[in-house]
Amino acid sequence: MTATSTRPAVFFDRDGVLNHDAGYLFEAAKFEWMDGAREAVRLVNEAGYFAFVVTNQSGVARGFYEESDVHALHRWMAEQLALAGAHIDAFEYCPDHPEAVIDRYRRDSHRRKPGPGMITDLMMRFPVAADKSILIGDKPSDLEAAEAAGIRGLLFREGNLETFVRQALSLLA
Score class of each variant (00 low, 15 high):
R107A: 13
A84V: 06
S109E: 07
G85H: 02
S141P: 05
L155G: 03
G137I: 04
K113N: 02
M1F: 06
A100N: 01
K113D: 01
H110Q: 15
D121A: 10
S109G: 09
R125Q: 11
A9E: 03
K113C: 02
K30I: 00
K132Q: 14
P114S: 05
G159Q: 09
R62N: 01
I88V: 15
H97G: 10
T163M: 01
E144D: 14
D13I: 04
L161H: 03
M118T: 07
T120S: 05
S58A: 15
T6F: 03
A84N: 08
P116Y: 05
R104E: 15
W33P: 00
E92W: 15
S58H: 11
G137P: 05
F164H: 02
F50D: 06
G153S: 05
K132L: 09
V53G: 08
G59H: 06
R14A: 05
R112N: 02
D131P: 01
T55H: 03
G63Y: 13
F50C: 13
T55C: 10
P127H: 09
D21I: 10
G115W: 00
N19T: 03
R157M: 10
E66N: 10
R7T: 07
M118Y: 04
I151T: 09
T55K: 05
K113Y: 01
R112E: 02
L25K: 07
F156A: 07
A37G: 12
A3M: 13
Y24S: 09
A100R: 00
F52P: 05
G137L: 03
E92I: 08
E46H: 09
L161E: 04
